[in-house]
Amino acid sequence: MSTAPVGSVVWSDLTVKNAEDVKDFYAQVIGWQANPINMGDYEDFSMQLPSNNQDVVGICHAKGSNAGLPAQWLLYFKVANLEDSIAQTQARGGQLLSKVKSYGSTSRYIIIQDPAGAVCALFEENT
């Protein structure tokens, strides 16, 4: 993700009640391969290209920190400064749907809802 410019879609994932069944659906429909990600007492999945095992999307259970998320593809947009983007979200009538969460040791994200009701994630990568 580090080479993506600010404003780019850097990831997308789908959160559903039964990620096991849904990952099989997309594996058959699109041709992705499922790579299990241990979440403690269950597994989420990164879906990979069969040609090179590159992760392209995630399919997650609506559990833990994903509980309550709508069943839709969630886009992660890269931002320059997460705090500034959060302030702009609130100032312009958006809502924060999650706390700021860490991704790895250098990145953070938050899930927001825009004034029209659309949901996305803002992703800041610090290198």
Rank of each mutant, 00 (worst) to 15 (best):
M1K: 13
T3W: 11
A4R: 11
V6T: 15
V6S: 09
G7L: 14
L14A: 10
N18T: 04
A19P: 04
A19L: 12
A19S: 12
E20Y: 15
K23Q: 14
Y26S: 05
A27Y: 02
V29Q: 12
I30M: 14
G31T: 03
W32I: 13
A34S: 08
N35A: 05
M39T: 00
D41K: 05
E43R: 03
F45L: 00
F45W: 13
S51I: 10
D55L: 06
D55R: 07
V57M: 15
V57Y: 15
G58Y: 10
C60V: 09
P70M: 06
P70V: 10
Q72A: 06
W73I: 02
L74R: 06
Y76V: 11
Y76W: 12
F77P: 13
F77W: 06
K78H: 05
K78P: 12
L82T: 01
L82Y: 10
I86F: 00
A87F: 00
A87T: 14
A91Y: 06
R92S: 07
R92E: 02
R92A: 02
G94P: 08
L96G: 04
K99W: 04
K101S: 15
K101W: 10
S102H: 09
Y103S: 11
G104K: 04
G104R: 06
S105K: 15
Y109M: 13
I111P: 01
Q113K: 13
Q113D: 00
D114F: 07
P115E: 01
G117Y: 05
A118H: 07
A118S: 04
V119T: 10
C120Q: 02
A121C: 04
L122G: 05
F123K: 09
E124A: 11
N126E: 05
N126V: 08
N126C: 00
